Amino acid sequence: MLDDRARMEAAKKEKVEQILAEFQLQEEDLKKVMRRMQKEMDRGLRLETHEEASVKMLPTYVRSTPEGSEVGDFLSLDLGGTNFRVMLVKVGEGEEGQWSVKTKHQMYSIPEDAMTGTAEMLFDYISECISDFLDKHQMKHKKLPLGFTFSFPVRHEDIDKGILLNWTKGFKASGAEGNNVVGLLRDAIKRRGDFEMDVVAMVNDTVATMISCYYEDHQCEVGMIVGTGCNACYMEEMQNVELVEGDEGRMCVNTEWGAFGDSGELDEFLLEYDRLVDESSANPGQQLYEKLIGGKYMGELVRLVLLRLVDENLLFHGEASEQLRTRGAFETRFVSQVESDTGDRKQIYNILSTLGLRPSTTDCDIVRRACESVSTRAAHMCSAGLAGVINRMRESRSEDVMRITVGVDGSVYKLHPSFKERFHASVRRLTPSCEITFIESEEGSGRGAALVSAVACKKACMLGQ
């Protein structure tokens, strides 16, 4: 009897593995994704193909990295998701002549009506938060230079001027797309009239992360975010950046690689679950690469896999709870928690219980395998993109072996128990001629924006502006 049951459990697990095998990517698959990513990057950089390229390769006008001589107080704003952060950054000489960066910050959550109302409502709310922060720190009387981390696709015309191309991540505030974001912020500050600010720089969160990590390690020339969304930036040779005049030196390019796949480059790798996630998203047909990796989508992918296993009578005796059938019910943090389970399955059992399920031991094991399959594919897909960037940098610099540091931020990278190990191992397999160091950014977005502002202020002083 026991043997029969054991055989049935083994057969069930084997069927589960057959279904989950769809998520496995072979090294040849990853090399294919990497080569296609490089081709799209090239198209994004070139003037004649930029418009139709899915990977936009947006110039950021960040050319210099901090040298350690900029000092002063800077205000930093960070808008990239449902939370908005205001930070005071003091850049100065530390002990023994070292450079020191001290920060104080406060988080504000953005109400739904500000995210989806008008641009005026959104930026009025942001300036209200700045006003509140300055009151708390008794700094209303000071006109501070301000660095703005704005983590949406922007076409820069200068370091302090950028046109919002399109909202992502659930934002829909009308009247912002096609307009200068810094102008919208300046107008809102003017409307309030109770404080003055000098907006000197606007950067993407990947750029802010790279600059913040450069402060720790001067070989950091790539910034990457794996959180709600997924994106990367890197220092490109100016001669390859056709959208900006000049051939000397390097400029940081914001790849906006989340949109890779929007022209069909990933079609052969998309599964039924991916198509369902895409169809029910706020932007169907867009940001397809990001939807395979980002935390906004990972939990939902797992939920759809679990429903398939229920329908195949391989999980929960073929019956799903009402909660499990509800879109968004299986949160991405559950994926991390399930994979963090120590082996007694308590954590998995508790999560499934909150979803109205009474799982068996085998159910718990199957749910864990589903989570591992989805998150491992995410790590491997992400590795193909980064390997594409790094191999490109090595080739354009004609280096036999390139040493490089990548600064990384984002909740999936930082909080998932195995993502970074799987990701690092896969990147290294795909970049055999590179020695890569990964560092995690601390308060990256805010500190990085302030350091970019410090560079901009120093330049302005040198130019006598």
Rank of each mutant, 00 (worst) to 15 (best):
M87E: 04
N180Q: 11
E120P: 15
E67G: 08
K90R: 03
F269Y: 04
M34N: 06
F74P: 00
L314I: 14
G294E: 13
R369W: 04
A119W: 08
G356L: 06
S433C: 04
N179D: 08
L271E: 02
L386P: 09
E112C: 08
P284K: 15
G299Q: 09
S375N: 03
R85W: 06
T332I: 11
R447I: 07
H380M: 13
L75D: 00
T49Q: 14
S321C: 11
N254Q: 08
V253N: 00
P417F: 04
F148M: 13
M298I: 15
E331A: 14
A320P: 15
D363G: 02
G223K: 00
A259D: 10
M402C: 08
T103K: 04
A11W: 15
M8Y: 15
Q138V: 08
K39Y: 07
L386Y: 02
K31T: 13
L271C: 01
Q323I: 13
F123C: 13
S445N: 13
T326K: 09
L301A: 10
L301W: 04
N204T: 06
T376A: 13
M402K: 08
G80L: 14
I436F: 11
D267A: 06
G178I: 15
N391T: 07
K296G: 13
H156T: 15
G299H: 05
E67H: 04
L134G: 06
D113W: 15
V200F: 05
G81R: 15
G264L: 08
V222R: 00
A282S: 15
G162T: 13
K39N: 04
M57Q: 06
D78I: 03
M41C: 05
T168C: 10
M298T: 13
E248P: 03
T326V: 14
M202H: 02
L164Q: 13
K13D: 14
E440M: 12
R191V: 05
D158L: 15
S398N: 02
V389C: 06
T206E: 02
E242D: 02
Y214A: 04
E52W: 10
S151K: 12
Q337S: 09
H105R: 06
T209N: 02
L357Q: 02
T361G: 07
K414V: 09
Q323F: 08
E442S: 14
E272L: 05
Q337T: 10
T332S: 09
I366W: 04
L88D: 14
E48G: 11
Y125R: 13
S174T: 02
I436R: 00
I189N: 04
H137P: 02
S411A: 08
K102C: 06
R5T: 13
H50C: 05
D274G: 02
F133Q: 05
D365Q: 14
S174E: 06
L315N: 02
Q347N: 04
H218F: 05
R36N: 02
C457R: 12
I126V: 12
G464L: 13
G92T: 07
Y297C: 12
A450D: 11
E399S: 11
Y234L: 03
A259V: 09
K161Q: 09
V401P: 15
T437F: 10
K169D: 10
L165D: 11
V427I: 11
V16I: 15
E395C: 12
A454D: 12
Q323Y: 07
T149S: 11
F84W: 04
D135Y: 10
C233W: 00
M251T: 13
E272H: 05
S418P: 13
V222W: 00
E242F: 01
S433W: 10
V62M: 00
D278R: 05
D205W: 04
L45A: 09
E395I: 09
L357Y: 08
E248Q: 10
G246R: 03
L357S: 07
R63L: 00
A387C: 08
E331F: 15
T362H: 05
D160A: 13
E40C: 09
G162Y: 12
R303T: 03
K143E: 01
P432R: 09
V181R: 04
D135E: 08
W257F: 14
A460V: 09
A384N: 01
L309R: 00
N180E: 15
G94S: 12
L75R: 00
K143G: 03
H424Y: 14
S76K: 02
G162C: 12
H380P: 00
M197K: 00
A378W: 13
E236L: 01
D262E: 09
G183H: 03
G328M: 02
E272R: 02
R428D: 11
P284M: 14
C382L: 10
Q239C: 13
D194Y: 15
T206V: 05
P153Y: 11
I126S: 03
L146E: 04
E272P: 02
A450T: 13
E196Y: 10
G261R: 00
E312M: 15
E290A: 13
L306R: 00
F133W: 03
G261W: 05
G246I: 02
S131T: 07
G464P: 14
S76T: 02
L301K: 11
L386M: 12
E248D: 06
F171S: 09
A378G: 11
T354V: 09
D4G: 12
K15N: 04
S353C: 05
R345Y: 06
P153G: 15
K420L: 12
L307K: 05
S445R: 12
M57V: 06
G147E: 10
R428P: 13
E128F: 12
K31W: 05
V401F: 07
H424D: 12
S69P: 09
R377H: 02
V199K: 03
A232K: 01
D132M: 14
R358G: 04
S373I: 11
C382S: 06
V367E: 00
G299V: 05
D42Y: 10
Y413A: 08
D3C: 08
E442R: 05
I163V: 12
L463Y: 13
